[in-house]
Design a binder for these strands. Structure first.
Lengths: 344, 344
DNA sequence: CTGAAAGCGCTTACAG
DNA sequence: CTGAAAGCGCTTACAG
């Protein structure tokens, strides 16, 4: 049977006030004997305060919500894992919610979680909706009376802090790597342009080209939807042009590109160099291991937590949007076409 | 500002009792006018009952816990997604906890969740510990006063219901498929034998062999740890024998097998047929798509929820352990070696 | 320094 | 049929 603070007070012959004070380490000058007596009894019964009772009076649930588009996506499960560990470390519990890339479900999740009385909220937005429709959602979010942090995504007009990998820098680094290897005819397979991540990565691609005075060509940029099949399809199209390299906006599409290239009897990296983005575990074990951009997800979770915790502790209300440095992982899918040597 | 039941009672000129009754649809013969008046006011203020207050008096948190070894593993994230959707459907909230394959952390999670006042618990056990050490954990679990269901794993002596894929049947089907294709020299790469899943799958392999009067050979069974590298290593060893097929206990190890086979200049399925287990998304997009055993994870989540819900609703206390039928997905990595045709 | 008491926002016997 | 009141298990001003 679960004991209450009253049970302990009785057994220790003190008031519940005293028990509460002692157990919360708020007892100042109290006889050491009383303190140990109370603590001993609490330990004996393995006393744990009733979470709901505490929450009712303190108005804190010690719970935080995390909304992701799809926990099945490895990026988000890594993120959830990281965030969960930080939550636990600080005595918070994580409630996970999948929006299934559906903005309706996303809004529903927000209100469900709010009704639950979460103390803070982390959201990785699904980005499948037009800006206009989002504007009232943004308004709602800005009015929330709990700290909020945006993960790996952003909505126009949001006033909360956020954190993501520096996607445009990633696109830049990937493209620059190709340029440094002597490539000039560099295509790009981007994700849906309405996605924050895709748009930023594409921007990096353009910037790298521009900086090196390589004119960009519309027909060398194809839009996929981050799926394997779309990577395949885009590559089939792209291969009709005279290209030597492709920057692919995520690894999954890069796998599709591999297939298309192989089917055309061409080889990687001899005929076509490929750089991906994400560094899925499979990228390393491909027959031709994929050169790609790695996102440091656990660091992302760390920063996200820091940002949230700042809000939770009512520190200075940071509104900054952090961008973490992505990392180029050079493997075997890119080749230097200047010298007669092999890869990078 | 968040309204309370008192605010609504005042505005509607009724008692809080009445408001509570109406809002919980427990009002029997009450003037329709009063009901609508109260409901309208509630809607106007977007009233939501304070979750902690309700919980304090009803002793229900409408929260359930899910402990998994590693959410980063696609199997568990699929499972979590499925479970979460059923929870939400029934008005429950899911708290996710990672045990990181660490039984200490697993026990900690259980007590943390219990302290939180969850109404039910789903656990996919990490199976990295000896049976003896587990026995007190089992005792603790059996004493829990909330419904519990075991997921895809089991501990000796547990008295709760559970559900998993019928692993031994999966191993059987996989091996029988190979036998049906004319193979007789069939190796097996198993997972850690201390794992429930690995042990069961291996058992299925043996049963299929036995039923077809193919003697099993110790040197044709290698134990891996479910990792890519271990699949590779095991295959290198196995290839020293005269074999024509391998049943690999999970897809990731099968990928390692692919690499080893390829490095030896052999081809799949012409020289070696391979059957995996899991059906990861990558299995389909391999150069030689992998024949494998698919676990129907969303159904698993469904059944798990049903089992838990039965306990939650205090129905008949089922103690059954359900085993779901696995599905053979035939692709290109297995070949019929009897007739001169091609694959299955 | 300690304890009695109010109060957090609900639900639910129990009277009227 | 309705409402006053007790009570869920805590925390925290406020008196003594």
């Amino acid at each position: 049977m679960r004991r209450t603070i009253v049970d302990i007070a009785k057994e220790a012959n003190v008031s519940v006030t005293t028990v509460s004070l002692v157990l919360n380490d708020k007892a100042k000058s109290m006889p050491e004997s009383t303190i140990t007596r109370i603590k001993d009894i609490a330990k004996k019964y393995n006393y744990k305060p009733n979470h709901m009772a505490v929450g009712l009076v303190t108005k804190k649930s010690k719970t935080i919500g995390l909304i992701v588009p799809d926990i099945t996506n490895n990026f988000f499960s890594e993120l959830a894992k990281s965030v969960e560990s930080y939550c636990n470390l600080h005595g918070y519990t994580l409630i996970l919610s999948n929006s299934n890339n559906d903005s309706k479900k996303e809004r529903l999740s927000v209100s469900l979680l709010m009704d639950r009385g979460i103390d803070g909220l982390l959201i990785a937005f699904s980005q499948t909706e037009s800006m206009e429709k989002q504007s009232d959602f943004v308004k709602l979010l800005n009015k929330l009376d709990i700290p909020l942090v945006a993960l790996d995504s952003y909505l126009e007009g949001l006033t909360c802090p956020g954190v993501s990998v520096h996607h445009s820098l990633g696109g830049y680094i990937a493209t620059k790597h190709l340029i440094d290897l002597g490539h000039k005819k560099i295509a790009c397979i981007t994700g849906p342009k309405s996605f924050y991540t895709a748009e930023r990565r594409l921007k990096g691609y353009f910037r790298a080209l521009e900086e090196h005075e390589i004119p960009s060509q519309d027909n060398l940029v194809k839009e996929g939807n981050y799926s394997y099949q779309s990577g395949y399809d885009a590559t089939v199209e792209l291969l009709k042009n005279d290209i030597t390299a492709i920057f692919v906006s995520n690894d999954l599409m890069a796998y599709g590109a591999y297939r298309a290239i192989q089917e055309q009897g061409k080889t990687i990296p001899d005929d076509i160099s490929i750089v991906g983005f994400d560094d899925l575990i499979f990228s390393e074990i491909l027959t031709v291991p994929l050169t790609t951009i790695r996102q440091q997800i656990s660091e992302l979770g760390n920063k996200a937590w820091d940002l949230l915790y700042q809000g939770l502790s009512d520190g200075t209300p940071t509104k900054e949007y952090l961008q973490l440095e992505p990392k180029l992982i050079i493997r075997k899918s890119t080749k230097n076409i200047l010298k007669e040597g092999n890869d990078a």
